[in-house]
C-alpha cells in the first residue's frame, strides 16, 4: 500500500476528477456534521425550556 499521488496538489486534482470527488467529500462531511450538531442543539434547547419552566414555577411559588 502506497500513496497514489506524487504530491498533495495531485491529490487535489486527481487527473481532472478532483472537483467531483472533493465536492462529494465536502458535501458528505457537511451533512454528517449537521446530523450531529442538530440533535445536540435540540437537546440543549429542550433542557433550557425545562430550566425556564422550573424557574418560573419556583418564582410564582415564592410570590404566593
Amino acid at each position: 500500500m502506497s500513496f497514489q499521488f506524487e504530491n498533495l496538489g495531485q491529490l487535489l486534482v486527481m487527473d481532472g476528477h478532483g472537483p467531483f470527488v472533493w465536492t462529494a467529500v465536502l458535501v458528505s462531511l457537511a451533512v454528517m456534521f449537521w446530523l450531529i450538531i442538530k440533535p445536540l442543539a435540540d437537546s440543549k434547547a429542550a433542557q433550557k425550556n425545562v430550566a425556564r419552566d422550573i424557574a418560573r414555577l419556583t418564582n410564582s411559588n415564592g410570590e404566593a
Binding site: F3, Q4, L11, M14, D15, H17, F20, V21, S28
Partner: peptide, 21 residues
C-alpha cells in the same frame, strides 16, 4: 480510500466517490 487505494482501471480517480456513496 482517497489517497492510498489504487485507482480504478476504467473509471480512474472518480471511482473514489464509492467510499462515500
Amino acid at each position: 480510500g482517497l489517497g492510498f487505494a489504487p485507482q480504478d482501471a476504467k473509471q480512474g480517480n472518480s471511482f473514489r466517490i464509492i467510499y462515500l456513496h
